[in-house]
Simulated scan of single mutants.
Amino acid sequence: MPAPHNPFKAALAAKQPQIGCWMSFGETIAAELMSTTGFDWLVVDGEHGPNDLRSITDQVRALEPTNSHAVVRVPIGEDWVLKQVLDAGAQTVLVPMIDTGAQAAAIVRACRYAPDGVRGMGGYGSRVTQFAAISDYATTANAEICVLVQAETRTAIENLDDILAVEGVDGVFVGPADLSADMGFPGQPEAPEMQAIIKDAITRIAAARKAPGILTFSIEAAKTYLDLGATFVAVGIDTVILATAARALSKDAKALIS
C-alpha cells in the first residue's frame, strides 16, 4: 500500500487556488470546528501558536478525515523537528524564515527519505504509516510530501530566484508581517512600498512555476493576490475571528442598555 495521496499538493501543482485560514488556539476541538467551515487548508501553527508535538498530532488527526487539509507550520526548519511532524502524519509543512536557496534545499532533504534526503526511517512504527500498515510508505512518501517555505526577510527577497530554483520546493509563502518589519515598515504591510515588493514576489514565484502563498485579512487584497497568481491564500486567524466577532457582539448588546 502506498503513502496517501496529498490533494493539497496536487491542487497547487494544477494551479487550483486554495483558500485557507490560520489556527492559533492549539486545541483539537477548535481544529474540528474549523474543519466544518469550508476552508481548503488550515494552518496548525507550531511557530506562534501554543503547540507542541502532541497538540500538532491531535489537530492533524482531527483534520485528516475532512476536506480541510492540514498545513503544519513548524517553529524552525530543523531536521529533527520536520522528522517528528512528518512521522506524526503531516503531509504538508510550512517552514519559516528561509533566506537562501541552500536553506531551502536543506529543508527539502529533511523531508525526503534517502537517497534523495536525510529523513529518518523510524516512521515505520508511527502513525504516519498507520503503525506499519502502509507497507510501501518509505518508497512512495517523497512524492506526496508538500514543502512550503516562507520568504519573510529582505535577504529572502534578494535570494528569491535561488530559492525558486530548488527542486522539491512546492511553494513559497510571502510573510507580510515579518517582511514589512525587516524592510523598515513594522506593522505596515499595506504600505505602498511593501505592496509593490509583495506583488512583485508573488509574480516571480508564479512565473517560476511554484505556488505563491500569503496571509491577508482583507478580501479585497485576497482577490488582488489571487489575480496575480497566488495559489494558496489564507484570509484570517481563528483567534482574531473569534475576538472580533465577540467584541462586536458585546458592544452591540451593551448598546441596548446604554
Rank of each mutant, 00 (worst) to 15 (best):
R73H: 05
Q59W: 04
Y137K: 05
I257V: 15
A70Q: 04
L215E: 09
T231L: 13
A206F: 14
A132C: 07
T92L: 01
M97I: 15
L256H: 11
V118A: 12
E27D: 14
T36S: 14
L82H: 08
F185E: 00
I241H: 10
D45V: 02
E32G: 09
G125C: 01
S135F: 11
L160Y: 09
E144Q: 15
R119Q: 03
V85G: 12
L228C: 08
V118Y: 11
A222Q: 13
G89D: 11
A246K: 04
A88N: 09
A207I: 00
Q130W: 05
T224K: 02
T37M: 15
E78C: 08
G122C: 07
D182G: 13
V166G: 08
V166A: 07
V74L: 07
T155C: 07
T153K: 04
M23P: 01
M23Y: 02
S218G: 08
T129A: 12
Q195K: 04
T224E: 15
E152P: 11
T239E: 07
G171R: 05
F185A: 02
Q188K: 09
P50E: 09
A165R: 08
E158I: 11
A110C: 04
T129W: 04
L82W: 01
H48Y: 00
V74S: 04
A132Q: 14
V128Y: 04
A207E: 00
D161H: 09
M121C: 10
I237G: 14
A243Y: 02
F185C: 00
T155N: 11
K223F: 05
D99G: 06
L12Q: 11
V95F: 05
A181E: 12
L94K: 08
L148Q: 10
E190P: 00
E190C: 06
G171P: 03
Q18M: 15
I241F: 13
A245C: 11
F217H: 10
G213T: 03
D252P: 00
I219R: 03
S55R: 08
V128N: 14
K83P: 08
C146P: 00
I163Q: 01
L63A: 11
H69V: 05
M34T: 08
D40F: 05
T100R: 09
Q188F: 00
T231G: 11
A221V: 02
T129N: 10
P189H: 03
A141L: 04
R127W: 08
A133F: 09
T224L: 07
A104N: 10
M183P: 07
Y113K: 09
N6L: 02
R154L: 15
F173C: 04
D79W: 09
A248K: 13
G125V: 03
E220A: 15
I19A: 09
D45L: 02
L215Q: 12
D200H: 06
G49H: 08
R154E: 15
T139W: 01
T140K: 06
L226I: 10
S35Q: 10
G125L: 00
M1H: 08
D238T: 06
I56L: 01
T92K: 03
F232E: 06
R119C: 00
T28N: 01
F131C: 06
D161W: 03
